[in-house]
Structure formats: structure tokens, C-alpha cells
Design a protein around this nucleic acid. Structure first.
Lengths: 129, 129
DNA sequence: CTTTATACCTCGTATAACTATATATAGTGC
DNA sequence: GCACTATATATAGTTATACGAGGTATAAAG
């Protein structure tokens, strides 16, 4: 097993704030990943990593999925895999779809507000495009 | 004094997630509010409330300002007001400007990723515009 | 001198995500 | 049939963050 620990010492906080940007968006992203069909846990992680900037650990996504399920936002079903461990597939419920729509709306509004705020800051960088 | 405590029981979570969307963006917003010139604490709150969706409490902004100051991102100076309590004006340092640019860049990238993820969700709502 | 308005500050608490680790299933080599 | 490995789900403990409630300070108004 080779514990290895690494223990990053967290003395450096070069991207401390970058991690914070993600907070709160993770739940919405998890719901969004299921919009087009059911996925299982690790699949959600891979999907979000490929489709957006969200690189989530397993210890992050499973508690969120369980919470969302407890709140009735999604359902789960075990599916036998042809090889390896069986997979628990998650699907959005109607309540989940509705909540996601509300969250997306709030996100869009919030995102626009912040973008407006950052316009003067970003302008200096966008010499191109 | 009637401590009162209130203890909101937090049984209702109608906008629990909405508050979470803001996390991590607050520090960036605080820096951004100072981009065009110095402001004092309450002024920052009012500015952000009028310019974006961010309604911050005093208990939120003051610890952040102190932290940013301790990190060398901004400076402060007391200024006598013509009436009432003196005001502590905050200004961005060069390091603060640089950090804000980096944060804005990361935010933009992250925001685009999430928006892309939410496109299928939002499309159904945007019948107009 | 009390009240009101403005402004700054801090403590305690609840919440959320992440790190590290544990558990479960099944295929592979011997 | 037993270790070893890969895949997958799960959770306990830590840390970071925002916020609500209260407190302090200054000065004008009554």
C-alpha cells in the first residue's frame, strides 16, 4: 500500500482561493452532469473533469451524491458490471431537475454580476480577442 | 440585554446553495471593488450590493479586509469624516492588483467551464432573448 | 444626557469540501 | 483457493468560510 502521505505542508497557498471559487458550485455541477442521463460515481468525476475545470476527488463527490439523494434530488440503482465492482448509477428526479434549473438561473445571474464587476480588471489582459 | 439568540433552527434551506455559490468569490469581489479607487468598509458593502448580486454582512467583510491587509494585498488609512465616525479607507497594493488579475483570470476560466456545463439546462428556459 | 446615526470590529457557530483511509467485488497468477 | 491488483463506493476527521449577534467609538440632534 505504501502510505506515502506526501503531507503537502500547506505552507504554500498559491491556489487557496482558486479552490474556494469552486465551493458551492460542486453540487450544481454534480446535478448538471446527470442532465443527459444516468452516470455512476467515478463517471461523474471523469465527466466533470473533461467538461469543465472541476477536478473532484472521490471523497468529495460521494458525500454530495448521498446528500442529494437524501434530499430526493436523485435516485440510485445498482447495476452489475461485466467486470469488476458493481456500479451505482444516479439519475435525476423531477425535483432534481427543477432544483438544477433554479440553481442554473441563480448561477447565471450571479455570474453575470461578478463578470460585470471584473470587467475593468480583465480588460487590461484582453489585448487580443 | 435579552440575549435572544434566535437560533434560526436552519430547518429551511431554500437558498442554502445560493449562499454557497458566493463562497470564494467574495474575496475577489472585495479586491475588485477597490480597483477604481479607495473605499471604506461599509462603502464596499454598498458598492458590491449595487453592482452585483453580492449582499455581504459586516461580519463577513471586515475579517476579509483584515486578512487581505495582513497578506499585503491592500493598505488602510484612517480618514476623518466631516460628521460621525472616522473611516478606514482601503486601497489595493501592487501585489493586490496582481493577485486580483490572476483571480479574475481563474474566475473567467472556471465560469466559462460551468456555463458550458449548464448550457443544456439553461437552454430550455431561454425562450426569449 | 439620552437618543440616533454612522462606522468598525470580533466571537461563536453552522456548513461545506477535501485528505486520507477503509471497505467491497471480481478478475489474474500460481 | 489464496494473495494481488483494479475498480468502485463510502466515511471519519480536519480545515476554511461566511454569517448572525453583539459590542465599541464618534458626533450630531433632541
Amino acid at each position: 500500500m505504501a502510505i506515502q502521505r506526501a503531507l503537502p505542508a500547506e505552507g504554500d497557498q498559491p491556489d487557496r482561493w482558486e479552490a474556494q471559487l469552486r465551493k458551492g458550485a460542486v453540487e450544481m455541477a454534480a446535478l448538471a452532469s446527470l442532465w443527459q442521463g444516468r452516470l455512476y460515481g467515478l463517471e461523474i468525476i471523469r465527466f466533470l473533469e473533461s467538461q469543465s475545470q472541476l477536478a473532484l476527488a472521490e471523497g468529495t463527490i460521494y458525500p454530495i451524491l448521498n446528500r442529494l439523494k437524501a434530499e430526493g434530488m436523485l435516485t440510485s440503482e445498482w447495476v452489475e458490471a461485466e467486470a469488476g465492482h458493481p456500479r451505482k448509477y444516479y439519475s435525476l428526479t423531477d425535483a432534481g431537475r427543477q432544483r438544477l434549473r433554479q440553481m442554473a438561473e441563480a448561477w447565471t445571474s450571479f455570474s453575470r454580476g461578478l463578470s460585470r464587476l471584473l470587467e475593468p480588471v480583465v480588460q487590461q489582459q484582453e489585448k487580443t480577442q
